Structure formats: C-alpha cells, structure tokens
Simulated scan of single mutants.
Amino acid sequence: MSAIDQTVSYSVTGHVAEITLQRPDAANAFNLPMARGFLAAVTRAVTDDDVRVILLAGAGARFCAGGDLASMIDAPDPQAALAELADLAHQSVRVLDAAGGKPVVAAVQGAAAGIGMSFVLGADVVVAARSARFVTAYTSVGLTPDGGMSWLLPRVVGQRRAAELLLTARPVSAEEAERIGIVSHLTDDDPLVEARTQAAALAARPAEALAQARRLVRSAWSRDLSAHLDDEAATISRMVGTEPTQALITTFLRR
C-alpha cells in the first residue's frame, strides 16, 4: 500500500485498486491536500491497465464527512479555497464517471455527507454498514450542492425525493438508503470486507462486457431511447463476434 499526499492510500490486489481516505481524526473531511491526493489516486487507477475495479473506502469510523469547513473558513480567501476544492473534487467525479470498464465500488460506514455522499452516488455498487448515515448537508450550513449531487441524486432516487433531501438535509439511514436505491448491499459487519468481495467478483467477470454494460447505463442519461437502442444493437452484435464472448457462450451451451 502506498500513500498519496499522506491523506489517501492506494493499493492494487487482484486487479482491484483500493483507494482509502486517510484523515480519520477529521472524519475524512476533504481539504485541499486530500482533494489533490484523491484526484491523483483515481487517475492512477483509471489509467492502470492492471486495474479492473476501483474500490473507495474511508479509514476510521466515518466514510467522509464532506468538505473541511474549518479549513475553508480559515483560508485567506475562502471563496478561492472553496472554488479550488470544488474544482479538484469535480475533476475526480469526471475521472470516475469516465472510468470506462472499471466499475466503482464504495464501502460506507458512519457518515457519508456532502462531497462524500456525492462520491457514493457516483459509484456503481455501494456496500454500507447498518450504522451508515447519508446526508446532503450543504443547505444546513448555507451552501449549495457540489460533486454532481444535484445531478446524480435525482437520477438515483427521483426528482421529488432528491429535492426533499437537498432542501431539508435530513439524515438518511442505511435501511432507507437501500430502499430508495442509494445503497446496493447492507451488512452487519465491516462494509469493507463485503465491498472487497463484491469488487473481486466484478474483477473476475468478463471485462469488456462489463465495460460496455457500464458505458450503456451511463450514456443512457444523456440521450433519447431511439439513439440508445441503436447503440445497444451495435454493441451486442459487435460483442458476439469477439473470441472471449464466443468462448463464454460455447461453455454456457455445453452445460
């Protein structure tokens, strides 16, 4: 395992890149060093040909409490500091969204708030402890969403519920988060254990099929049904002509 800017750790095991926020004493709140380290880590994972799955985690009792408000207020120019922090976080959101065939798995314990919740919403698979809590947070301190939350949350839970969660900033329990689609799997144990199992299982599946399935799901948000159907038809017909897919189909038919 290697450290990136002492705030983010990075390791690769079995084609899974594990990226862990390492400010547990500050509830893994994002400050500028962490934002830079996180961007470096996700960029490294996406560009590493040995990596097939990206796993996001937070050290300590909480996944991520959002932005580090204390560091923002103490900055000589709070507006400039927050603009830089948001820009770095948004670069990471873009990198993860465009991760190609590398599914993103998040392991959540304790609080996932603000930008922490945004990164959860951008993941493909979310494993949460029953102790986890999700909170948009921003409006409680007079701020507005960032990290793509106002774009991602309506797509995950629907516009009306997203508006309610952003306007009230009420905490969402792990059970409710699973019910409304924020969480994929709940666990009574350390969520990182189950998240590693999920990530390893994804890393063992047909890589190109996962790549194209992930691309199709994400591209569906920005185009009409007819264009999407054309893409689906072209993709599945192309895939059936590849040697790995033909081998998998042959094995399936011989069962």
Rank of each mutant, 00 (worst) to 15 (best):
A70F: 10
D48S: 08
T168V: 03
L248Q: 14
S222Q: 11
A201P: 01
S9E: 13
R44C: 00
P154Q: 12
G114H: 00
A70Y: 11
F63K: 00
R36C: 04
R36A: 10
L143H: 14
A207F: 00
T136K: 01
I180F: 07
Q109G: 14
L121A: 08
V16D: 07
A26R: 12
M149W: 08
D224F: 08
V126E: 10
S219C: 08
L69H: 11
P103Q: 01
A75M: 05
T139K: 14
I54Q: 10
V104Q: 12
A132S: 14
N31E: 13
H90R: 13
F30K: 00
R179H: 09
I4K: 00
K102E: 09
A234T: 10
V172C: 12
Q212T: 11
L55K: 04
D87Q: 14
L248M: 15
Q79R: 15
A199H: 01
G100L: 06
A26L: 13
L202G: 02
L55N: 02
I115N: 04
E18C: 05
T197E: 14
A17L: 04
Q91V: 06
Q159D: 13
T235H: 05
A57Q: 06
R238D: 14
V93T: 07
V120Y: 03
D77P: 09
Q212A: 07
R214H: 12
S219G: 13
A213Y: 07
D146Y: 14
R254Q: 13
P78Q: 07
S173E: 02
A99N: 13
